[in-house]
Amino acid sequence: MARVVWHVPVTDPGTGATVLRLFRLRDGRRCAVGFSTPEALTALLGPDQAFTELGETALRALTAPLGVDTLVLDPRLVAPPVGGSPRIPALPPVGRLQHR
């Protein structure tokens, strides 16, 4: 039986450690993402996205303690990362309503 390897996105937070990059499903739950080829990963996440190779069992073992139980292989859409807290534009002052 051939060994199945997933190409899993990772980040380096500057501490010298490699950290799995987790994503969110539409319903807000966290999930881990893997790609069947490095080209599929690059096509979706860009050429600068670092990755590591993991089997499904290893990926599940790493994410289970974090409460992540969903793995997605070869997603077709990934939204751009959200930076910081969302900014809500200031609304212009509202004048007093006048009844006629």
Rank of each mutant, 00 (worst) to 15 (best):
P89G: 13
T42Y: 05
L77W: 06
G67L: 06
R60M: 11
F51Y: 12
L62H: 14
P75G: 15
W6Q: 04
T11W: 12
R30A: 13
L62V: 05
L59R: 09
P65T: 11
V68H: 09
G55E: 13
T63W: 03
A79I: 00
V10T: 14
A61K: 09
V68S: 06
T37L: 00
A43H: 08
C31Q: 02
A32W: 12
A64S: 14
D12L: 03
I88F: 15
L41T: 08
T11P: 01
L22T: 04
A64K: 12
P80L: 11
D27C: 03
R96H: 15
R24W: 02
A79Q: 03
A50P: 02
Q49N: 02
L91S: 13
G84N: 06
A2R: 10
L97K: 08
A58D: 07
L73A: 09
D27M: 01
E56K: 09
P89C: 12
P9H: 04
P38M: 12
G34M: 11
T18E: 12
G34K: 03
V82W: 03
G34I: 05
H7E: 11
L97H: 10
S36E: 13
S85Y: 07
F51L: 02
L45G: 00
T11N: 13
D69C: 04
G84F: 04
E56I: 07
T52Q: 05
M1V: 09
P9S: 08
T42R: 13
G16P: 00
Q98I: 11
P38F: 14
R24D: 00
V72F: 02
P65W: 14
G14V: 00
V10D: 05
